[in-house]
Computed example of a mutant assay.
Amino acid sequence: MASLATLGNELYTGKRSINFVGRRRTWFAVAGALMVASLLLLGFKGINAGIEFRGGSQFTVSGAQTLDQQRAYDVIAQTGTGEAPRVSGVGANSLRVQTGKLTDQQTQQVKQGLAEEYGVPVNDVAATYVGPSWGSSVTAKALQGLVIFLVLVSIVMAAYFRTWTMSLAAIGALVHDLVVTVGIYALVGFEVTPASVIGFLTILGYSLYDTVVVFDKVRENNAHLLNQKRRTYAEGANLAVNQTLVRSINTSVTGLLPVASILFVGAFLLGAGTLRDIGLALFVGMLLSTWSSVFIAAPLEVSLRERQAPIAKHTRQVLAHRAKTRAANGEGGDDDGEADLAPSTEDLGVGVVAGHHLGPSAQPKRKKGRR
């Protein structure tokens, strides 16, 4: 099996090619199905909003002699609130209990009950109340920041790449990442807290970074598109995706390893809610952003660009020229003519690249001198 370095070199030079752009309808169907499923989950199941968004009372038991969560459920049941509490462990000897809004009398009753059940002084049971208005303010600010971010990204990318197609394709990939990430949260019941919202906004930058790298290579490969007839815009874009594929994989692995460590430490060792919430959002979002930059952003940009008259005309010219050349050379094709239109390795290759070489086999052979 070829090494990753060998595979990367073959993908970069065009010796080996994966048809990402040519199968874009398949990727669009998969992405669309994921987004529809996520929206259905949000509509029917909803998200598990944290206490910061829904409001309520929170109790933290420090130095508990046991972490049996059933005892906390029994204490809350005795208050007669009628709402099931949310109980979770925090660290090695602490417990967190979240309920709906309680009166002062009920709060004191719960504190006393928790202290007795877990064998700690009443002063070691901290009680706080969070109003839902604070969560509404956080949600409004997050949505406002998201809208401003998307608008600025659209303007900057349109100015940088001098085309609106790359800007719109990048926004489409970002929306996909956000919707599917939130859908996964709804599916598995992860609690959405302000830390989760921060994680959601963070993955936007990561997704955008990977997409810009791919688009920059697409622009480079198609810089003089209309002055040649070797390959179409779609083929140049597909070559760009192949050329940046190994880089995207390496970047994703490098980024996911520390995030996985944060997630493991926060969820299993320390029981820290903030680390867990941010880690989950980042881990899921980074995986999706790698997928979207390869399978959604570039293919979507090609679909938008091929609707433009100059690109569509050039594509027809390239395919006609290719079919004519192969017919003149006596190269037959299938009955449907697809073989005549498929690009050759020579059409997709980038030739000699500065800083790279094709190995000793590509060097000219010396003729043996006569003795």
Rank of each mutant, 00 (worst) to 15 (best):
F44M: 04
Y209W: 10
F190Q: 03
P194W: 00
P343V: 02
L152A: 13
S3Q: 14
Q106L: 09
L34W: 13
G56Q: 11
F161M: 13
L201C: 09
V61Y: 00
L257Y: 08
F53D: 08
P85M: 09
G369Q: 10
G255E: 04
S57R: 01
S137A: 14
G205L: 02
V265Y: 05
R24C: 07
A127T: 03
N9E: 15
L174M: 15
L245H: 10
V110W: 10
R25Y: 12
V253E: 04
Q363V: 11
G135S: 02
R54F: 01
V147T: 01
A5L: 12
T163P: 05
L226Q: 14
R326F: 14
L269M: 12
E220L: 08
A169R: 00
Q65I: 03
Q243Y: 01
A115E: 08
P194C: 01
N19M: 07
M286E: 05
I184T: 00
G46F: 00
L304F: 15
V302R: 01
G359M: 07
A142H: 03
V87C: 03
V130A: 11
T193F: 07
R219S: 05
D210P: 09
A223N: 11
V294W: 00
V259N: 13
S252G: 15
T193H: 10
A127H: 09
Q144G: 11
A309S: 13
L269Q: 09
A240S: 15
L287H: 03
A323T: 12
T290A: 03
G337A: 03
F53M: 11
G279L: 10
R219E: 06
L270Q: 14
R54Q: 13
F268M: 12
A186Q: 00
A33D: 11
Y185G: 00
Q70E: 13
S344F: 13
T251N: 15
G82A: 11
V90T: 03
A272L: 10
E117N: 09
A186L: 07
G56L: 07
N9L: 15
P310I: 00
V147A: 15
R316E: 12
N227D: 15
L201S: 07
Y160C: 09
K111P: 06
K45C: 05
Q317M: 09
M157F: 05
S88C: 06
G63A: 06
A115R: 09
S17I: 06
G100E: 01
R54E: 15
L263I: 06
R307P: 07
N242P: 13
A84M: 10
Y185A: 00
